[in-house]
């Protein structure tokens, strides 16, 4: 009997605290698979945010550090500077990175800090119960926008990849989505590329995952994935914004 696919040793056996169908689980798995394939589980350090992924240090089988809200890039920058031989990453949601942590991520990119940020964009605040986030789409309902977000009241959703791609030292910026097996393979390739560039110490690397939040959106998990493909990908184009030759 030959193993074709087995759960990665980068994930602990602990059951995740995520809701059924949440894309966090897929994102966790592909990041950990990439680290395992590189033989880097023993020299990776992750920094996790406030948000649904606050418990990620229970699930990811690498050394991890918990950060204050939005400040993961500042902590990761320090860790990477004193441990130049380690692979350092932050794992942040949109409520953490795009609102309270917007200054930290912009300046970490601007300084060209040599770590990788994995940004989970599900267009809503998940952990606190579905409030409007900076990334919530126009017309999308949230507990703080019960009739849907309007331009008049809340402006336009923030496109983080496009913003960071204007910064010279953000050398790798790519947006992927986790909606079908082909896209998951593409996402994994982007994670590998970002880690390659980090190891070559070229600059700041950033991967955004368009993800589903079935519970707070009020959709069944499979319908939530369709919503990502139809609605989110229309506003947040899935593509590579910047890369660098190695």
């Amino acid at each position: 009997m030959k193993t074709v696919f087995a759960p990665t040793s980068g994930m602990t056996p602990v059951d995740t605290s995520y809701c059924p169908g949440c894309s966090h689980g897929i994102a966790h798995r592909i990041i950990m698979e990439c680290l395992e394939e590189r033989g880097a589980l023993g020299r990776a350090i992750g920094v996790v945010p406030i948000g649904c992924a606050i418990n990620a240090h229970h699930f990811m089988n690498v050394d991890m550090c918990e950060s204050t809200h939005g400040r993961a890039p500042a902590i990761a920058a320090g860790i990477r500077r004193v441990h130049p031989d380690k692979l350092v990453f932050t794992y942040q949601g949109d409520g953490d990175l795009a609102s309270i942590g917007a200054a930290e991520i912009v300046h970490a990119a601007h300084r060209g800090e040599k770590f990788t940020t994995f940004f989970i964009n599900n267009a809503i605040y998940g952990m606190t119960g579905g409030q409007m986030a900076p990334t919530t789409l126009i017309g999308q309902r949230a507990t703080t926008a019960v009739d849907g977000r309007t331009v008049e009241q809340a402006g336009m959703p923030l496109r983080v990849c496009e913003m960071l791609a204007t910064i010279d030292m953000a050398v790798f910026v790519e947006r992927v989505m986790l909606t079908n097996p082909a896209q998951v393979r593409r996402a994994k390739a982007a994670v590998h590329k970002a880690l390659d560039i980090q190891e070559a110490r070229k600059g700041f690397t950033f991967v955004e995952f368009l993800s589903a939040c079935p519970t707070n959106w009020g959709y069944a998990p499979v319908d939530a994935l369709k919503w990502v493909e139809e609605k989110m990908a229309a506003y947040y184009p899935v593509k590579n914004f910047r890369t660098v030759e190695l």
Binding site: M1, K2, T3, V4, F5, A6, P7, T8, M11, D15, T16, Y18, P20, G21, C22, S23, H24, G25, I26, R29, N180, P181, V184, R185
Partner: peptide, 24 residues
């Protein structure tokens, strides 16, 4: 058919796939 579509999409790492050899 061992295509791994289910395992790639599983958010909870629940699925393992093995290829059987002859006689198994």
């Amino acid at each position: 058919i061992g295509c791994q579509s289910c395992a790639l999409m599983c958010p909870d790492c629940c699925i393992s796939i093995y290829e059987l050899e002859e006689g198994e």
